[in-house]
């Protein structure tokens, strides 16, 4: 997660509803927003809807932002919430009792961001959402569970399940 530094003057212009400044902010942050939405939903159309809703919300509510320096984090939060709202139906959490636990094999490989991204998008929707919120976006389990409407223990167990699946998928991808 690369932190984008935004000029305070640009933020002030965006608050003043300057269309050029809004476009400039969009250009600077659109990849961050779209990538987060696309990775959580694994659907281009839904990710574009989330992108549009997010920027409309940002431009309308930016006046209420108390700390303009936290604009990037605020945009990411809005994006995550919109993505959860959009993909609420597909975020179904499998019962982990019925799933066979994979062996604790030692991981002896190296992987990069591209490989991890492919592995993340192959995860089940519920586990993928938990992994994205907790492991990538840095939300605590309590908050992630609240956003997704599940218990904290479900969040923890789903994260553990997601990591095991990722390990297996990355190994498979490396062997291919």
């Amino acid at each position: 997660m690369t932190q984008i530094q935004l000029d305070s003057e640009l933020i002030e212009q965006v608050i003043a509803q300057d269309r050029k400044a809004q476009f400039q902010l969009f250009e600077l942050t659109k990849r961050m927003v779209y990538s987060l939405a696309f990775r959580m939903l694994d659907d281009e159309d839904m990710a574009h809807d989330v992108l549009q809703d997010t920027y409309v919300q940002v431009f309308q509510q930016i006046r209420n932002l108390k700390h303009p320096e936290a604009l990037t984090s605020w945009i990411r939060t809005i994006t995550a919430r919109n993505a959860i709202r959009k993909g609420k139906r597909q975020f179904q959490f499998e019962k982990l009792d019925q799933i066979e636990e994979a062996g604790e094999d030692q991981f002896e490989s190296w992987f990069d961001g591209e490989l991890l991204d492919q592995a993340i998008r192959s995860l089940p929707p519920g586990a993928r959402a938990i992994f994205m919120l907790v492991a990538v976006e840095g939300y605590p389990h309590q908050e992630a569970a609240k956003l997704l409407g599940v218990s904290e223990s479900t969040s923890k167990s789903q994260l553990s399940y997601a990591k095991k699946l990722l390990k297996t998928r990355i190994k498979t991808l490396l062997q291919a």
């Binding site: 779209y34 990538s35 990069d112 591209e114 991204d117």
Partner: peptide, 12 residues
């Protein structure tokens, strides 16, 4: 480490 360096996608 890698989760901080995930690739970015370009929107339409």
């Amino acid at each position: 480490k890698v989760s901080l360096d995930l690739p970015h996608f370009e929107p339409s």
